[in-house]
Amino acid sequence: MSPTPTTATTALDRTTWSRPPVFFTHPAARYGFWFALAAYLVWSTGTLNIDWARTAQGLPRAGDMLARMFPPDFSRSELLIKGVLESLQMAFAASFIGMILAITLGLAAASNLAPRPVYLVARSLIVLSRTFHEVIIAIFFVKIVGFGPLAGLLTLIVASVSFISKMIAEDIENMNMGQVEAVRATGASFPKLLLYAVQPQILPRYLGVCIYRLDANIRHSTVVGIVGAGGIGMTLSATFKRYDYDFSLAILLTIIALVFIGEVFSTWVRSRLR
């Protein structure tokens, strides 16, 4: 591997070096790109039709709203607790059902395990259910099953299944196929293969994803209520409509506490999964 000395290299400057550009090899293209980007930003903010007068009015309005929010009114604690419990129930039930259902869909959506047609169907299902935001799915379910926590539960199940199964599928696709090959070579059937080669490789991350999803479901359970799908969000939306801002603040503080606890719990559990 000893470098063979050549005469051509002596003419080159060997004291400076800079990384070759990746995207625009020609300097003109590079500066042109930055100029075009700046021009676009100026143009786009100019065409947004921002009503500065209305925006200016917003500040005193916000001040007024904040003033009416204080002090937060926790007196209707019964309503508050009922809403919070409903949200938590929705979040827990949806996470649990979601993590069970997602196993099948996740396996079906892994290109290295599932037959091609199964894979395509499963992937389309996941893509389809991820296309719409939870709120849109919630509106849909409220129309079908009516107002209340069932609509919220169904929404969160759909969201959890698509999220967890996508994670499982990607994890399976990234797993070490050598281990799978070795277990297959012992004559193991497909279920045994899942048990001995697939499950050990994906379990820690699967649990991590499920805990993360529980945390996310707690947050989302407060949102879907706003369109009538049950939980504390439904109560919150009602207080805004009736200008009960002090009760609104009490609910918001409760949600913050709830999400914070969920986040801490989720981080703690996931740090222990290795």
């Binding site: 070490n176 050598g178 281990q179 090959e181 070795a182 277990v183 070579a185 012992t186 001995y196 080669a197 050990p200 490789q201 379990l203 820690p204």
Partner: peptide, 14 residues
């Protein structure tokens, strides 16, 4: 038929 591999291919978490 027993098989032995270059990368050992043990299931590492077991």
């Amino acid at each position: 038929i027993g098989m032995i591999f270059q990368e050992y291919n043990l299931v590492e978490r077991l």
